[in-house]
Amino acid sequence: MSAYLLYPGCSWDSSARAYALSTGAVCRELGLELRQLEDWNCCGATEYLSVDTVPAYALISRNLALAARQQNGAKTLTAPCSLCYLNLSKADYYLEENPSLNEKVNRALEAGGMHYQPGTLEIRHLLDILLNDVGLDTIRRHVTRPLNGLRVAPYLGCLLSRPDYRQRFSHPDQPHELDLLLKALGADVVDYPLKTQCCGGHMTQIGPNTAYELLRRLLHGAEQYKAHLIATVCPMCQLNLDAYQHDVNRHFGTRFATPVLYFTQLMGLAFGLEPKALGIGLELVGAREALAHIGVETPPPAQAPQRGRRRKKKSEGLPMPSMPEDDQS
């Protein structure tokens, strides 16, 4: 398996420690080498772009320049955080599209003795690499403790599949990549219609009421579809849904208690790894109860809730149109 450059992002060793631990464990298991970029800087999140344009792109591009310098044969720069992933790919794409911006950013980089030629790197999210480079077959082979009976809401948040400059995901609204991966782990994947709705991003800091409503919708949705837990691919989503769940409950008088885990943690569990090594327990809304559902030899047939959604073909009434995935199963 080839080596990848890893742009970890500012939360990697702090708020997203569980993500870092589980990614490390899973990659070791799969023989995937992630080499951390040296002396990387913050991607600026959504804040820097709000303040200024050229400096924001220069800030992001310094990382691209570093990566191009340190790539040593690795073409792919991977980011586990959706926001970092977006910013890195956004800069790469816009520098390519806009020669004048490219020129300015590169002149700025020169001041730090650096240069970046847009298109040099492939910028990809960790999920994309696990799904498309490692592949579902390999992942399935590593599963020793299938997540049967665990109802998981696949939650991608906004920035992975949107705007998706290089068209790496199946659809901006309803991408199926995370579903496929979780199914390969044996999980009972909930058809979660809110999978790419926003977690509020930085609004938990500056406009909590706006953010709490967005979080309420996601938690309410997960509860509506009887999910035991929410799987995320982004530290920002995890932080908002997990750490602010208590505040959301206080704000609305609700009693949500849905744990939010990284997809890599679920992979590790399915691979039979030790929960502690995967950072299980670092979540603020405990996952213990939810995880009690796995490890059961033959789980009882999942009681699909009545949702008035997709009907089985044989039912009475008018027939439903067929969907492309009908043919796959």
Partner: peptide, 8 residues
């Protein structure tokens, strides 16, 4: 919130 929903 910079979710890009409108954009796509």
């Amino acid at each position: 919130v910079s979710c890009y929903q409108c954009m796509v």
